[in-house]
């Protein structure tokens, strides 16, 4: 088991090294990066927005339920939803969802190119395929995913507002007071650190799984699934380590 892990980890690092080598023609890479930014960012906007709104709404309703009858002031709901969204749910849940949507798509796209000999064709032309296929995806993901995470945090707060203010569980002024209370800008820093690291993990793991796929459609499906599963596990592990390092 350890030798299997060492093999994959070594090959992953090797692929990363190749991915960050000098591009043949910056213009082509830039064009590909823009295409990926559109795929990752614009393509994921709706799913991220829906999940964020519900994430905030559920958090607000459940905290309202738990705080009901307690001595804790009701405006704490806004404060808790805000910090939960910024520190944890927006970066982590958004990236877990993106690992499923974007990560599996990347693994399938690159794996399909491997199977249809597109990667071999590029290699023979002299293209550094690791850099050409992976670097634009990493750059695009590291630009777009933090933006999606920031948007998710904002929408989660809006979702929380709608869930507790519209049914008049708490007054609007209380929720807004909660949002304005005990704000620690450092938490936004933590959110972006998580977003960058999670974006890197889900992109590189998915590309790795696709790049080295062997066999036919069954293996491609398995690689796509593994990309999501491994990315999710590593995101959760990284989440814990970041929490320990940045807030411990």
């Amino acid at each position: 088991m350890f030798s299997n892990f060492a093999f994959h980890f070594g090959r992953y690092l090797d692929l990363l090294w190749d991915s960050f080598s000098r591009p043949e023609r910056l213009k082509i890479y830039w064009r590909e990066t823009l295409r990926q930014m559109d795929d990752i960012g614009v393509g994921s906007l709706i799913i991220v927005a829906i999940i964020a709104v519900f994430m905030g709404a559920v958090a607000a309703v459940q905290f309202a339920y738990q705080l009901d009858g307690q001595l804790v002031p009701s405006y704490y709901i806004g404060y808790i939803v805000r910090d939960l969204a910024i520190i944890e749910s927006a970066p982590t849940i958004t990236c877990l969802v993106l690992a499923g949507k974007v990560g599996s798509n990347m693994a399938s796209e690159i794996g399909g190119m491997r199977q249809k000999e597109h990667i071999d064709a590029m290699e023979i032309m002299g293209v550094n395929t690791a850099a050409f296929l992976i670097l634009p995806k990493i750059i695009a993901a590291m630009i777009m995913i933090p933006l999606l995470v920031a948007l998710a945090a904002g929408l989660a707060i809006v979702g929380g507002y709608m869930a507790v203010v519209i049914p008049e569980t708490i007054p609007s002024s209380a929720y807004i007071k909660g949002l304005q209370s005990f704000f620690v800008p450092y938490n936004v820093f933590i959110m972006f650190v998580k977003a960058f690291i999670f974006a890197f993990i889900l992109t590189t793991v998915s590309c790795y799984k696709g790049y080295y796929v062997e066999g036919g459609s069954v293996e491609l499906g398995a690689a796509s699934t593994q990309a999501v599963v491994v990315s999710d596990i590593l995101i959760l592990l990284a989440d814990f380590l970041i929490a320990v390092v940045l807030t411990g």
Binding site: E117, H118, A121, M125, G126, N128
Partner: peptide
């Protein structure tokens, strides 16, 4: 190797055209 490969062309069995 990359500069030599620029002198190499290959026709693949499935053509390997980018869809």
């Amino acid at each position: 190797l990359r500069s030599l490969r620029m002198k190499v062309g290959m026709l693949f069995q499935g053509s390997a055209l980018f869809d």
